[in-house]
Design a protein around this nucleic acid. Structure first.
Lengths: 227, 227
DNA sequence: ATCTGGTAAGTAAGTACTTACTTTCAAGGC
DNA sequence: GCCTTGAAAGTAAGTACTTACTTACCAGAT
């Protein structure tokens, strides 16, 4: 009767089973959403009875919370933009800053597409946990990247523009690319490029778009447009 | 017992009630998704019995399909990029092309946030109807905008780069802005700008990013990078 | 009188969650 | 070694309620 998923119907240690159930729930919730996934399905996929699920997680909600917690906060290899870009920033290598962040974000989303789906579902379903992630992570990125941009603006390297707008453009390109690959166009019929190429071209466009005209060519071409 | 939503418990003409149920279902489905919305809720919100819902739509699925049909295809004021940009394109006014499209898209999403939620839900829940919309609409935009970009590249106005990448960047900025306003950050704590300002700045960055250096300044600054 | 908009009261199959029970297994006395 | 013990891993079969969808029946206007 038992589904025997992965491990042969053997008895497991408590913590081991807890993690197995969690992993299976991640995959099911990310595929079908909270409301679309039944506790019975989770149990069957884990190869145990429903009662075991409820032994480890008092309610379905608690299981969901445990997942978002596990993935967003303690989630193994968390995405740390500050750390990733630290030396590029020290060198003021704008290209490296943006390209590294773009590439790592794209890789992260490709390697763990479940998380993006999970987050979208929880945002749509108005689980407070999506809001929590947004507050803790996205805000941080805006602050961090925005700060760097502001600094480079003061140095005359970037054009004057609300840094938040620039951050939004950049994140927009990257997130939209991941969203297309993971959700809208997984077959990549509209655009099929490597993460490396995407990161490079996005950076090309963004940097060309926000780099201030160099001082010695003030009289230069059509670029010296002002708003 | 009847909820009497909007109209006093009066008897309605068939088509009128059908449209009322449809409108109410739009709002409920977009808020709670397909699985998260019950036929009972829809009936109650419309102020009729559940049986009436099933008189007009044989199944819940059919109701859902009718909605996406109604919104995506015959949806009142459909978003027609070709029409919107037709004279800007004729004039080869790049700024007007991108800024108009961005502004109209942003306005569309702001005026009808339900549609974006509906589409996201149906993509996550893998309703074929999201795929249908993607195939019919998004493909068209890529083809249309990509075609324009290719033309301008041949004329030497834009840098050489796969037009699909440029389209993705542009749509990424715009869609991400709408997604932030409608889903992630409706309070606009990270960035609070008008649609007009957003459209303008996105176009600024994109155009500066993809405009080819003008011929008379070939020897110009750091821009003349090649990949 | 009959067609159309409308309902009350179902049904069968889920749903999250519980209860009462059995199996496994490692530790510790013999 | 071998047996007892007790807690933890596990289950089958519920409960109370919800779900999509149906049936059988009204009432009023034309």
């Amino acid at each position: 009767m038992s589904t025997n998923n992965g491990v042969s119907g053997a008895r497991m240690a408590g913590e081991e089973r807890r993690l197995q159930i969690l992993a299976i729930a991640v995959s099911l919730f990310s595929n079908r959403g909270f409301r679309g996934t039944t506790t019975k399905e989770i149990a069957q996929a884990a190869g145990v009875s429903e009662a075991m699920v409820f032994r480890h997680f008092a309610t379905k909600e608690e299981l969901y919370a445990a997942i978002l917690d596990h993935k967003a906060c303690a989630g193994g290899e968390a995405f740390e933009p500050e750390t990733l870009a630290i030396d590029a920033i020290a060198r003021k290598d704008d290209r490296a800053v943006f390209e590294t962040l773009a590439l790592e974000a794209l890789r992260h989303h490709e390697h763990d597409p479940e998380f993006q789906r999970l987050l979208l579902y929880s945002a749509l379903e108005k689980h407070e946990l999506a809001e929590m992630f947004f507050d803790q992570f996205v805000r941080r990125v805006y602050k961090f990247l925005g700060g760097y941009i502001r600094e480079r603006q003061r140095e005359g390297a970037f054009i004057e523009m609300d840094p938040a707008i620039i951050v939004r453009c950049f994140i927009g390109m990257v997130m939209h690319q991941s969203l297309n690959n993971n959700l809208w166009d997984p077959k990549r019929r509209l655009l099929n490029i490597s993460n490396e190429a995407a990161a490079k071209h996005f950076t090309d466009i963004l940097l060309a778009g926000i780099t201030a005209p160099s001082p010695q060519t003030k009289d230069a071409p059509a670029r010296s447009r002002k708003g």
